[in-house]
Amino acid sequence: MSKPKVAFYWCASCGGCEETIVDLAEDILGIVEKVDIVLWPVAMDFKYKDIEAMPDKSIAATLLNGAIRTTEQEEMAHMLRRKSQYLIAYGACAHLGGIPGLSNQFSREHMLKFNYEDAPSMANPKKTRPQLKFADGGREPTLPELHHVVRTLDQVVEVDYYVPGCPPTPKLTNVAVTALLENRLPPKGSVIAPDIALCDECPRKASKPVNTSFTEFKRPHQKLMDPNLCLLAQGIVCMGPSTRSGCEAACIRGGMPCTGCFGPTSRVRDQGLKILSSLCSNVAPKENGEIDKVLEGIPDPVGTFYRYGLAKSLMRRKVNLPVK
């Protein structure tokens, strides 16, 4: 019997997810032995047209990381969907939109202008911008077009499973791949991580008092943090209570708060709203002016509560942006 074919692909992402695949270390060799990798742009040279030529569903599983921002990414997502039995959204960007999803707060024009003209590090006196097409010595190369908004993978094509995280941990990746290889799959649409919030496995759980209320919020660099006390009890925004567990509280063990990359539990449609509702309900002052003072400690609420989840949230984007 021939080995199952597997594809890795990346869309709007930073490359960190690819790093995790490599981080599987010895395990990767075991996996590589058992599968036949047909596409992995970051590590191997394959041509899209070879994939195009394969029969539909001939790839057992595609692990796709990154959000969908460009026409090319959308095209590839559709093609890989067609060719794969299982399409797996791998990592926070494919799962929730991730960091690229934060750009849904701004128009495409706003972003291009900033990046090619206004950014302090930009030297572009002619204000040149990327062109979709241009003529160069008789050739006419093209570039993919940017969509108006960033979408999650499942807002573009049907997704079978999600491996959460920015990036996913090697352990969870291993769980997912093993489940695939051994055909022990959870119900379609599952996120491959426990469906309980991070506090459950947090080493600081017991240190949180039952009556935690907020008189101020501080960002990690503004405070000398107690290494054992619940971060929320120290007034540091920690997304743990509204974030799926499974990372074994890696950030908190490293002394930093959870920023929410595993996304919400299956019962929550909007992670940011949920943590907002929880934190705000527990703000100590009851008068407007004083409440505002406490909230001043969170200068970038969208970046704090929707760091990974904006594209997947109920709002998805700034109201007046077109969808595509």
Partner: peptide
């Protein structure tokens, strides 16, 4: 409370 799903984060208690 959904007992299995509760992470014990205590956010609800003082409210």
């Amino acid at each position: 409370i959904l007992d299995e799903e509760c992470s014990g984060c205590k956010s609800c208690i003082p409210l």
